Simulated scan of single mutants.
Amino acid sequence: MTHLVQGSPIPTIDEPTLIAYFAALNDERYEDVAGLFAEEGVLYPPFEEPVIGRRAIAHYLHLEAVGMRAEPRTGELLTTEGTERRYRLVGNAQLPLFRVNVAWQFGLNPGNQITFVKVDLLATLEELLNYQPLRQQR
């Protein structure tokens, strides 16, 4: 059973950097999102090449994330490898035409900067191939 960490909108997570990431992403403040990354931080979007560096991440989000709302439901600290903390959060992303279950993995350095975010869609390939946009369904 998960619990809501006092003051956190993400159940079981009270990490300020992660809370700030989702707040800025959902408000479409992509420069603020990119500013949470380490200088050479990496965004691993599903089905695309890695996006490296703050400037490239902000640009990518301006192109690909408009109208998206990310809603993590649960999260946990996976490991503390060396000086990096790794988290995994699970929830969904609401896009203009559909909703999909998502898992996010984050790495945070000792300065609480994001070293990487890996975004995985939690759908089978068959489910994704059978997706019909809402406007095409009758």
Rank of each mutant, 00 (worst) to 15 (best):
M1E: 14
T2Y: 06
T2W: 07
H3Y: 11
H3G: 13
H3E: 12
H3T: 14
H3K: 12
L4E: 14
V5Y: 06
G7K: 07
G7D: 11
S8W: 02
S8C: 00
S8P: 07
P9K: 01
I10Q: 05
P11E: 07
P11Q: 04
T12H: 07
T12M: 14
I13Y: 04
D14C: 03
D14V: 02
E15H: 09
P16Y: 00
T17A: 13
T17N: 02
L18Y: 00
L18C: 03
L18I: 12
A20D: 06
F22P: 00
F22Q: 02
A23H: 00
A23D: 06
N26K: 06
D27P: 01
D27S: 12
D27R: 13
E28T: 11
R29C: 06
D32M: 08
V33T: 03
A34H: 03
A34R: 00
G35R: 08
G35A: 09
L36P: 01
A38R: 03
E39M: 03
G41V: 07
G41L: 00
V42Y: 03
V42L: 01
L43A: 07
L43P: 07
Y44R: 01
P46C: 01
F47D: 08
F47L: 03
E48D: 12
E48R: 15
E48Q: 14
E49T: 05
E49A: 01
P50A: 00
V51H: 03
G53I: 04
R54F: 01
R55T: 07
R55S: 13
H59Q: 15
L61N: 01
H62I: 08
L63T: 15
E64V: 08
E64T: 13
E64W: 09
A65S: 12
G67T: 11
M68N: 08
R69M: 06
A70H: 14
A70E: 15
A70Q: 10
E71T: 10
P72N: 06
R73E: 03
G75H: 09
E76P: 05
L77D: 08
L77P: 03
T79S: 14
E81A: 09
E81G: 03
E81Y: 01
T83R: 10
R85L: 09
R85H: 14
R85S: 13
R86T: 14
R88P: 04
R88E: 04
L89W: 04
L89Y: 04
G91A: 15
G91K: 05
N92Y: 13
N92E: 11
A93E: 02
Q94P: 00
L95F: 12
P96T: 07
F98M: 14
F98G: 05
V102E: 00
A103D: 02
W104P: 04
F106P: 15
L108E: 02
N109E: 06
G111T: 10
N112P: 05
T115W: 10
T115N: 15
F116K: 08
V117H: 02
V117L: 13
V117K: 02
K118L: 13
K118V: 09
V119S: 01
V119P: 04
D120K: 00
D120F: 05
D120P: 00
L121T: 13
L122F: 11
T124H: 01
T124S: 05
L125V: 14
L128V: 05
N130S: 12
Y131A: 04
Q132T: 12
P133C: 11
L134N: 07
Q136D: 15
Q136S: 08
Q137G: 13
Q137Y: 09
R138W: 11
